[in-house]
Deep mutational scan, measured.
Amino acid sequence: RPFRVCDHKRTIRKGLTAATRQELLAKALETLLLNGVLTLVLEEDGTAVDSEDFFQLLEDDTCLMVLQSGQSWS
């Protein structure tokens, strides 16, 4: 499924495809050149996407933000 993913400053944006939350996090880690533990949130309001069940309910092309440890949505 297609998703739009950005870093916490919204300066890097990438289109990625993934079937699972874990797959998307792995691709974001590599594509956005990030490291460490990542958190996935909705870009629009910062809602945490912390379960596979919730991830599977997201629509195609949902905009997501990837946060590294110590970063927060704004």
Rank of each mutant, 00 (worst) to 15 (best):
L57Y: 11
T47Y: 05
H8P: 06
G70N: 12
L29C: 10
L16I: 12
C6I: 08
N35A: 12
L29V: 15
Q68L: 06
A48H: 07
Q56M: 10
R1G: 01
T62H: 03
L24K: 02
L29D: 09
D61R: 07
L29G: 15
S74Q: 13
Q22P: 06
M65F: 01
N35H: 10
L40M: 13
A19L: 08
G70W: 05
Q71G: 02
E30P: 14
D50I: 04
A19Y: 12
L29Q: 15
G15V: 14
T17H: 06
S69R: 13
D45S: 10
S74Y: 13
L40T: 07
T39G: 08
D50R: 06
M65H: 01
Q71D: 07
A48W: 07
L57F: 10
G70F: 05
E44M: 10
E43H: 01
Q68I: 04
A19H: 11
R13A: 14
D53Y: 06
L40K: 03
R4V: 09
L33Q: 14
T31E: 12
G15R: 14
E43A: 03
L24G: 02
C63N: 14
L38Y: 08
L16A: 07
A26F: 11
V5N: 01
L64W: 03
R13W: 12
D61V: 03
T20S: 13
L58H: 00
D50G: 08
G36D: 15
T47I: 06
F54C: 14
L29E: 15
M65N: 02
W73Q: 05
Q22V: 10
D60P: 10
R13Q: 15
A48C: 12
L38Q: 08
P2L: 15
F54V: 14
E52D: 08
D7F: 00
E59L: 07
S72L: 09
E59M: 08
T17L: 12
D53E: 11
K9H: 09
L32G: 15
K14I: 13
S51I: 02
K14M: 15
T17I: 08
M65S: 02
Q68V: 09
L34M: 12
D50F: 02
H8N: 10
L42M: 14
L34D: 00
L16D: 12
D60L: 06
V5Q: 01
V41Q: 02
D61F: 03
L24Q: 02
T47A: 09
L33G: 15
E52L: 03
Q68A: 10
K9P: 03
I12L: 10
L57S: 14
V37W: 08
K27E: 09
D53V: 06
E43N: 05
T47P: 02
L24E: 01
V5I: 15
G70D: 15
A19S: 14
S69T: 11
G70T: 07
V37F: 09
V41Y: 03
R13L: 13
R4I: 15
K9E: 09
Q56L: 09
L67T: 02
K9L: 09
R10P: 02
G36Q: 05
S51R: 11
N35C: 08
L67K: 00
D50V: 06
V5K: 01
R10K: 04
L29H: 11
C63E: 10
E52M: 00
Q22A: 10
L33Y: 09
Q22G: 15
S72I: 14
D61C: 05
A28V: 10
T20W: 05
L33N: 14
Q22K: 09
M65Y: 01
D7L: 04
L29W: 11
A28H: 00
P2S: 11
T39Y: 08
D50K: 07
E23H: 04
N35S: 12
L58C: 04
V37S: 11
Q71L: 02
D7R: 02
T11K: 13
L24A: 05
E59R: 12
L58N: 05
A48R: 10
A26N: 12
C6V: 13
T17A: 09
T31Y: 12
G15N: 10
D60R: 11
A19P: 07
K9G: 08
L40A: 10
Q68E: 15
Q22R: 07
L67C: 08
T47F: 05
W73L: 03
M65I: 02
V41C: 07
R4P: 04
E44F: 05
R1W: 01
L58I: 11
Q71E: 14
E59H: 07
L34P: 08
C63D: 09
F54T: 13
L33S: 14
T11Y: 09
R13H: 13
E59A: 11
L16N: 04
V41T: 06
T47W: 03
G70V: 01
C6N: 01
D45E: 07
L16V: 12
L57C: 14
E23N: 04
E43I: 00
S74T: 14
F55D: 00
E30Q: 12
R10H: 04
V49S: 01
D61N: 15
L16R: 00
E52T: 01
R13C: 12
M65R: 06
G70I: 13
D50W: 04
V49M: 04
Q68N: 07
G46D: 01
V49P: 01
S51L: 01
V49T: 01
P2N: 15
R10M: 03
T39K: 11
L57Q: 14
L42F: 06
H8K: 05
L24P: 03
Q71K: 02
E44Y: 07
S69F: 06
D7I: 08
T62S: 09
Q71I: 05
T62R: 09
